[in-house]
Computed example of a mutant assay.
Amino acid sequence: MMVWAGRVISALVVLFLLVDAYTGLFAAQTLKAEMDATGFPANLVPAIGIIALICGVLYAIPATSVIGAVLTTAFLGGAICTHFRVGEILSPPQIVCLVVVVAAWAGLYFRDSRVRQLMPFKV
């Protein structure tokens, strides 16, 4: 049961990252206002989409899921930091990024016994 819960949570994380990648690669114009607000040039949106795609693919593959979780944490941690920099403390994008990172590690914890051995929480 715990493994299936981990798979479902992980699938939602992958779905989030793939939608983020799709938006960055194929609908970059929809993010122009957000990029301007954070001080990043809009021409970086496709690169951000590629990073999200790489994170999602690595996280989805069991053999590379831990590095995918680490990279996802770094990627979304950068997004959280960016919103802090512009004065958006506890903004919806920050909360979503935090929830996705926690979900990524929770999904991995539930579906991978090696991660449970490294982080021996009682569930």
Rank of each mutant, 00 (worst) to 15 (best):
M119H: 05
V70P: 01
L90A: 15
F40N: 08
A11K: 09
P120S: 14
P46A: 12
A60S: 11
I51G: 00
A79K: 03
G6C: 08
W105I: 04
L90S: 13
Y22H: 09
V66D: 05
A11N: 04
D20S: 15
L108R: 05
L44Y: 12
S113H: 13
Q29V: 02
F75S: 05
A63M: 03
A42D: 10
S65D: 01
A104F: 01
S113C: 10
L12M: 13
V115E: 06
L76C: 01
V13W: 00
V19H: 05
D112R: 09
C97A: 15
N43A: 10
A69C: 10
L76I: 05
I48Y: 13
A63Y: 15
D20C: 04
P41W: 04
H83K: 07
I51W: 05
I80E: 01
G49S: 11
E88F: 12
T30Y: 07
A79G: 14
V19S: 07
V57T: 02
C97P: 00
A47H: 14
Q94N: 09
G49D: 00
M119E: 10
A27N: 12
V101M: 06
T73M: 09
A37V: 01
V123K: 07
L18E: 05
L17P: 01
R7S: 10
V96F: 15
I9R: 00
A69I: 04
W105M: 04
A27S: 14
L31A: 14
P120V: 08
P120E: 13
V45S: 00
V115S: 00
L53T: 05
R111K: 15
A11C: 12
T72L: 03
L90K: 13
S91P: 08
C81N: 13
I50V: 15
S91H: 12
A33N: 08
I54K: 02
N43C: 01
V8W: 11
F75V: 01
A33F: 09
E34F: 11
Q117T: 12
G68T: 04
L44M: 14
P46H: 03
L108Y: 11
G87R: 06
E88P: 03
A37E: 14
I67N: 02
V100H: 11
G107A: 11
I50E: 09
L53V: 05
A27D: 13
G6L: 04
A69Q: 05
R114T: 12
V115D: 10
I95L: 15
A79S: 06
P41T: 13
V101A: 02
G78W: 11
S65I: 00
A103M: 08
L108G: 03
V3C: 06
L18C: 08
D20A: 13
A47F: 11
G56Q: 05
V8F: 07
P62T: 08
R111W: 02
R114E: 15
S91N: 08
L15N: 03
F75M: 06
I67C: 04
F26E: 09
R114G: 14
L15P: 10
V66E: 07
C55I: 01
V57F: 03
F121C: 14
F75Y: 10
A79V: 11
L15I: 12
